[in-house]
């Protein structure tokens, strides 16, 4: 079943159309990824879904309800949490306070306590440092905080914006393992935006390639991994030329 249905959305930054008409579905329980270069419009899509930005045109349906143009807090209440890019923690709040901010819209104290325990299980290091200021934590730990904070809203759909950004390969692996576990165990549907295409394609089941505000490919991750253009432009696998290294890029065809 489609949990999220995006139809023909167009989003602008002033006069610039960043999203030039995009339609796609996210199935319930799936991990879906959006690949694309800098400026392709990946983050804009997430922001448009979460209500931080409003689309000029088009509709977004979440669990059969229209959500485009809704204020972000209502979107969160409906069950969509965004994990913003660049580890945006509240620096002057403690780890626990940060996590509680994620549950801001919830009223069920018992449930919140239970979920707090759950995120400490996923991220034991956060459980050990509940009283430490978030600003004093390492980059990897801050990334854990933002994911955990999003989980605290008990979302049905989590929008993850480049969780691997600026982290060591080992940490990236660790965080992704946890992301996959969350998807499996909590049945949270994930929409994942990534520059780290190999990682994203290895965990997701379905992917879209975004170029200049338009979707140019839409396929299973298996197919995407085998695609010549994805290989050359997103996985960095190039056939060598006769000379050895080849600097020029052939034309993208997206087929």
């Amino acid at each position: 079943m489609s949990l999220l249905k995006v139809r023909n959305i167009e989003t602008y930054y002033g006069p610039i159309m960043a999203i030039k008409g995009i339609s796609f579905d996210v199935q319930e329980g799936a991990i879906v990824t959006i690949l694309g270069a800098n400026g392709a419009g990946k983050t804009t899509i997430l922001k448009t879904i979460s209500g931080v930005m409003d689309p000029e045109k088009g509709t977004i349906e979440f669990m059969d309800q229209r959500i485009e143009g809704m204020p972000p807090d209502r979107v969160v209440r409906m069950g969509i949490s965004q994990v913003p890019e660049g580890r945006e923690v509240f620096h002057d709040l403690t780890v626990k306070e940060n996590l509680m901010m994620g549950a801001y819209v919830r009223k069920d104290r018992a449930g919140i306590q239970k979920d707090l325990q759950m995120v400490y299980d996923y991220f034991p290091i956060l459980g050990e440092r509940t009283a430490q200021y978030a600003g004093d934590m390492s980059g990897g730990e801050q990334q854990m905080i933002v994911i955990a904070r999003a989980l605290m809203a008990r979302p049905k759909l989590m929008l993850l914006d480049e969780p691997s950004l600026g982290l060591s390969p080992r940490l990236v692996k660790e965080i992704y393992e946890i992301i996959v576990r969350i998807n499996k165990e909590q049945k949270t549907t994930l929409l994942l935006v990534e520059q780290n295409a190999p990682m994203a394609l290895s965990v997701a089941s379905h992917g879209f390639v975004l170029e200049l505000g338009r979707i140019v490919m839409d396929d299973t991750c298996e197919e995407l991994l085998a695609n010549e253009d994805v290989k050359e432009f997103y996985l960095g696998i190039k056939e060598e030329s006769v000379r050895g290294s080849r600097r020029w890029k052939r034309k993208k065809k997206w087929r």
Partner: peptide, 10 residues
């Protein structure tokens, strides 16, 4: 397609 809300991906 955009003007008439015809959904498409690729």
């Amino acid at each position: 397609a955009q003007d008439n809300r015809i959904p498409f991906t690729t």
